[in-house]
Structure formats: C-alpha cells, structure tokens
C-alpha cells in the first residue's frame, strides 16, 4: 500500500499505485456503507471543514457524509455568502480558518489553481473538491472505482468522454487518471467546447459522436454547463441534443456491454436521454454517487494517516 501525498490537489500528482491504494481502501468502505451501522473511527477527534466558494449540493453532501461516517467533526461553510464578499482575500480566509486548527480542509473554488494556492498557506491536509476548470480528483477516483467494479479492471479500456470538455474539470481529472492507468481515451464534442492542444495529451478527438463511440467500453457524459457559458458556444440546446445527446441509437455504436456514466447533475434531454439514464442495465449513474462517499472516505482516511505521521515526526523533532 502506497500513498504519500500530503494533500489531494489533483490526479496529476498521484502515482498509479497511489490511485490503486485509494480504490482498494474505498472497496472496504463500500461494504461498510452498505451496513446498517455505518461507523468507523479513522477520523475520530479530527475536524473537517468544507469550504465551498461555489454552490454545490451533491459533492458537499458526499464529503460531509464521508467525514461523519469516519467520526470527524464536520463543519460546512458556504463561502459565497461570507466575508469573501467583504473583500477578504482567499489567503486571509485560509489563514483565519487555519488558526482554528482543522485537520482536513475540503475546498471548492471557481478559479483554477486556487486550491493549490490555499494549500501552500495552511498546515492541514487539503482536498480539492473542484477548482475552476482545472481538476476534480475525487470525481475521477470515484469514476475509476465505478468502472473497475463494472468492468473488472481499470486498464486497457476504451473510454469516451463526451460533451463540454473545455469547461470541465471532471474531464481533465478523468483523462489524466485514465491515461495513467493506460486506457485509450476519446474526447467527443463540438470543436467550440474542445480545449486546444488536447491532441498532444494523448487523446483521440472526435467531432462526430457515432464515430467516436464505436467500440467504446465506457461512455462518460458531461453536463452541459450552462452557468459557465459566456454565450455562443453552441447554436441551441436542441441542436446539441440532436448531435451530441446520448440516446439508445447513438449508444448502439459502442460495445454491447458499454456502461454509461454521468457526474451529475444531469440535464435530461440536453446531453442524455432520460430513459437511458434510468436503464439499470447500462447506466451506472447511481453507483457513481454511492462510490463517491466511499472514495471520499478512503481519501480522507489516507490523508489523515499521513497527517498523523507527519505531526508525529514534527513532535519527535521538537523533543530531540
């Protein structure tokens, strides 16, 4: 078992064996979460603060539940209504919270790199719950766990990521993770929603969805992030659905046993057909939510172990 990271800022910093460690431990928490009494004590006595500078329901609930099931004291701070509005800088906010001695800080922020910046200024473990268009590591890890459970492996698969790639941190974290685990990655979407230079990252890029889905094992749909649109990326929602919305007809181009994933929240009838999303034979969207709690428990458990070790070392250093 290997997991050396001090913070979980992005998949970029994780080695393949560290990813495997998270997934293996998460399996144990999946079993725990299915029991009636869902209590462990890995984070007992520790304080977890969830700082969300951007609105979130699911991710925040998932982190809160994960922390509580591991015995941590969890505090939620909805930062979009707080002193940030009064002009306090991100670093000052971080230092203020740091003075309250949290052990785990879960942060979501609308600016890429903001969580990295914050992690430099605090002495607890920081988990990135999404920074701008940069990374969303726990989402990629929970997707990996979902795929591994459905497909029996997390390598040598052909995975299509479809939709608004340009504005998606989920797509970035996933393509880094799946690349590290040696999968074949296809990005499918209109060219206006495709970030430039992605071909250099070892992905295959398709503008035609049917062509791109051919022989895929996994189809990951992305939310069309309306709130991020400056306007004019696509002509209309209905044209988007016609060309890039996933329905049974388009899915037929993928492998017969291909699974359908979506990080949520879904826009039914925009990027995915409602019936398909509910098809228990193809869609693993509900499993993703379930895996989310387990993966976040695993991440926080591993970070807490490293934090204890580091503090132990510091204490020993002080005494010596």
């Amino acid at each position: 078992m290997t997991f050396r990271a001090r913070h979980l800022l992005g998949i970029e910093h994780l080695a393949p064996e560290e990813i495997r460690t998270v997934l293996d431990l998460a399996e144990k928490y999946v079993a725990l979460n299915q029991r009636t009494v869902k209590q462990a004590d890995s984070l007992k006595g520790m304080t977890q603060i969830n700082m969300f500078f951007e609105a979130s329901t699911r991710t925040q609930a998932s982190f809160e539940l994960a922390g509580k099931r591991l015995g941590a004291d969890v505090m939620n701070m909805a930062m979009q209504h707080s002193s940030v509005k009064k002009g306090e800088t991100l670093i000052d906010t971080a230092l203020t919270l740091n003075a309250m001695h949290p052990d785990l800080l879960v942060v979501r922020h609308p600016a890429s790199g903001a969580v990295d910046l914050l992690a430099q200024k605090v002495n607890c473990a920081v988990l990135n719950a999404g920074d701008g268009r940069h990374e969303h590591p726990t989402q990629a890890l929970l997707d990996a766990l979902t795929i591994r459970r459905a497909k029996g492996r997390i390598q040598r698969l052909t995975v299509a990521i479809c939709g608004d790639i340009a504005h998606s941190r989920v797509a970035r974290s996933n393509l880094i993770l799946l690349g590290k685990m040696e999968n074949r990655i296809r990005l499918i979407g209109p060219p206006t929603l495709m970030p430039s230079g992605v071909r250099d990252l070892g992905c295959e890029v398709y503008e035609d969805m049917r062509e791109g889905l051919k022989d895929c094992d996994v189809v990951m749909m992305l939310r069309l992030q309306k709130e991020r649109m400056d306007g004019g990326f696509i002509p209309s929602e209905r044209e988007y659905y016609h060309r890039y919305g996933l329905d049974a007809e388009k899915l037929a181009y993928a492998r017969e046993d291909a699974i359908v994933m979506h990080p949520g929240p879904m826009n039914r009838g925009v990027e995915i057909d409602g019936e398909l999303a509910d098809d228990i034979n193809r869609s693993v969207i509900q499993d993703q939510v379930e895996m989310g709690v387990a993966v976040r428990m695993a991440c926080m458990d591993l970070l807490a172990r490293n934090l204890r070790t580091e503090r132990g070392r510091q204490a020993a250093g002080v005494m010596a």
Binding site: S112, G132, R172, S196, G197, V198, D200, L201
Partner: peptide, 15 residues
Amino acid sequence: TSGKFASLRGLPGVS
C-alpha cells in the same frame, strides 16, 4: 496562451 498548457491547467487562453 491557448494550447496544451492552458488546457491542462484549466486556465482561459487566448489564441
């Protein structure tokens, strides 16, 4: 500047 680096870092780029 738009390109591989901007895409990886998730930063808005200009051509």
